[in-house]
Design a protein around this nucleic acid. Sequence first.
DNA 1: TGCCATGGTGGTAGCGCTATCAGCTATAAG
DNA 2: CTTATAGCTGATAGCGCTACCACCATGGCA
Lengths: 348, 348
Amino acid sequence: MTKPSRRSRGSITVQDVAREAGVSAMTVSRVVNGGTNVREATREAVLAAIAKLNYSPNSAARSLAAGEATQIGLLYSNPSAAYLSQFLIGALAAARRAGCHLVLEACEGERAEEQAEATRGFVQTHVQGVILPPPLSEVTAVRDELEAAGIPWVSVAMGLPPEGSLNVRIDDFAAACAMTKHLIDMGHRHIGFIRGNPNQTSSAERYRGFCAAIEEAGLDLAAMPVEQGYFTFRSGIVASEALLDLPEPPTAIFASNDDMAAAAVGVAHRRGLHVPQDLSVVGFDDTALATTMWPELTTVRQPIAAMAEAALTMLLDELRPGGKIDAPEQVLAHQLIVRESCAPPPKR
Amino acid sequence: MTKPSRRSRGSITVQDVAREAGVSAMTVSRVVNGGTNVREATREAVLAAIAKLNYSPNSAARSLAAGEATQIGLLYSNPSAAYLSQFLIGALAAARRAGCHLVLEACEGERAEEQAEATRGFVQTHVQGVILPPPLSEVTAVRDELEAAGIPWVSVAMGLPPEGSLNVRIDDFAAACAMTKHLIDMGHRHIGFIRGNPNQTSSAERYRGFCAAIEEAGLDLAAMPVEQGYFTFRSGIVASEALLDLPEPPTAIFASNDDMAAAAVGVAHRRGLHVPQDLSVVGFDDTALATTMWPELTTVRQPIAAMAEAALTMLLDELRPGGKIDAPEQVLAHQLIVRESCAPPPKR
DNA sequence: TGCCATGGTGGTAGCGCTATCAGCTATAAG
DNA sequence: CTTATAGCTGATAGCGCTACCACCATGGCA
């Protein structure tokens, strides 16, 4: 008489599958994980048993037995909500597959001391690795703290990551270049640019892309009005006002992110300018904002969720004892999203 | 000669703490978890040892040994990004504390069949419970599917949840009432209301709150123009146009969420109306949008992260074998956030 | 013919924690 | 003074899985 174990929730285990397939638990485990050194016939028998019993491995047991990393930190700071939610979706998907937990920590302040403090929180909770989405990927206070604690990290969406560091990003340069070409192809010859926050290297990369496209088209870069922005809506207002106050205002504005582009549209409306008939506006990032405005924004889409997934996967590879990272740097594809906020320039 | 176990990552375990404190591992475990039946002196010794060794429990081992729920589903559908990110932050915090994984699943379509399909994905991945943020909390196709599979769920932010169901929410009625009172107190006597999507009971509750405040102030409810919206920016545009096209347009617009309020502001600007001098606009939810617009929006803040945390905690309580839920319904406090988008009505 | 590679498989021993129960000490009750 | 009762503690036995080795067939090579 086999009384069922008191604690068991009656779920299917490797043992059940092994019995069903007529092999050992070990072989089932091998099939489930990559499965090197298993004969094809055996593998199929196991897979059939898994399907029949509707088995799914217990991730707690798996991480415990494998001694895997279980806590991965994610330090975020004042991200756009749209960015963060996409990022979390991607990170969670990867985390669940790997059976590890995501530990979030907000890093509010701008001061190095506050940032270091938030980072230390991670060290105390024993996270085994940390993911740094922008703009934290660029903050040395955070990176130094992690370095000191010997915790590996992956930076995401840096414009120009330091050599040899783990990072996942898009090609900001190429994307900005393509967007600028799009404006030029529409007929714009006088394009205003709003730069991003200089504390992020992607700002410089986007500006470089803009410049490259202008020069490649044989236009006079010096004639293009450029304003400094800081990725915030407010800074976009100031920059847009400055651009539109010029004696000869541009016919198109390329803002380094969507928030600032939204600001440009708002300023234009206040001045009675119609977008896109009188002024074209384009952004960068394709956040939710881009489609909750009127007109909807032409912008560059970053595969945010995929980048988060890639970052977590890369980090776990790094953490795995034997496994060395084959590519410490991963560049994912961006996409130009054309919507209604840009049109050929008005005829004079 | 004790060779260290091959797989150990050198982390501190209960055994280490037990040795340090001069007690058994079991006692340490008791102290760490609630700690019933432990003498005060013993507890302190254990806590001291924990602090000294900087011990933190291994959540994988814990869930495995305790046979706890490890996978909680979260079905989301076209939420505002701001809502989702806040929600995930709260849910993740609770999930990590409980040592369970969050399994996300997007439920895109509107059709019952698609919704049921997405839900079945959960059943196959063996989630032990499901959290339903709005608007899915109201979708019967989803709930029926979960019911059929015997998976418990918690609904979040329903306006008027069915009796006896697990749910976490705010008092939409009271919040809308307070907001309306705020407008009346400012001197508004002719207030336009944009309703939310009728597929969500919170829409009706917010409208009820509006009506109650109007009547309580002795105003004529029938004189207040009301338009149907669907929580989207687009629907807000249509509704706002209708309100402002009236022969006698309202001096204030109360939109049932921030997206529609943002639309109202946009429409007003297009018509050359200044907000808040010519028209006051208020929203509901306090999403990120409320502060990335100009002027910033007066709105109602829902404690989204706290609601998500409460929902997950409630679900885990329900799942715990012995533990019965003491309160299947939990109402959290909302907050009126006053910003720049509303002012006394213009003098005639 | 022997012998070592090699690919495939199973047995064993934990990973770090907690449920269970037995035992042990104090206090209350008989 | 015994017995019942409660409070506190520890030994044991797993939770479901995988690392590690031992093992057994092959088959190629000397």
